[in-house]
Amino acid sequence: MKKLIGLALIALTFTACKFNDADKPKLPIMGNRDAVTKTVNGKEVVDTVYQTIPDFKFVNQYGDTITQTSLKGDIYVADFFFTTCPSICPIMHRNMLNVYNEFKNVPDFKIISHTIDPKHDSVAVMKKYADKLGISGNSWWLLQGNKEQTYELGQKNYLVAVKQDDGTPGGYVHQGWFVLVDKQKRIRGYYDGTDEKQVAKLIEDIKILRTEVNTEIAQ
């Protein structure tokens, strides 16, 4: 009997290992993190709290109000741009179109592009830009709203540099990062939107992320 239990234990360990390291590739969880001590059932437990993207309120190219609730249950890619950008935006959105075309019919995926020049990029300007790029439907939103909120979201939450600088061509400094966010609003990847190869990697990573089963999703 003891032998049998021993064998069963060994078998269990093996299968457990196999389950854990799964052949499937996994994406890291990025951003800042905190260790929080909680009391669960009278025991002290240390838990990791990952940085998440907080709620926001913007308007998309159709004039609809978009908040975190609009993205509930979605994986999404965020970037920062402006329609009159002379430098890296055209190539970013040339590459983003590959992402759009790959996933436009997928219900739990979205792209959100925040304008960092909301004064010029009104809803009408954004709609025109979307039309020119051939974007339709609701899988790619061009978001416009409060400038300070946009900049804060970029700098503090997505951890990408965004600022106004009249000395640079176009008047704004920004990096071409595409930020991948999971259904729990955690950052799962950064990709250089000006590099076609990294954007191809983003497409692969979105596929991986979509297969990720997570019990925490229900919120």
Binding site: P86, S87, I88, P90, I91, H93, R94, L97, Y129, D131, K132, L133, G134, T194
Partner: peptide, 16 residues
């Protein structure tokens, strides 16, 4: 020029 007009001078849809 390439960022906007493309490596093959193809432009960008109806934008460029």
């Amino acid at each position: 020029c390439q960022n906007c007009h493309g490596a093959k001078g193809e432009g960008l849809l109806n934008l460029i």
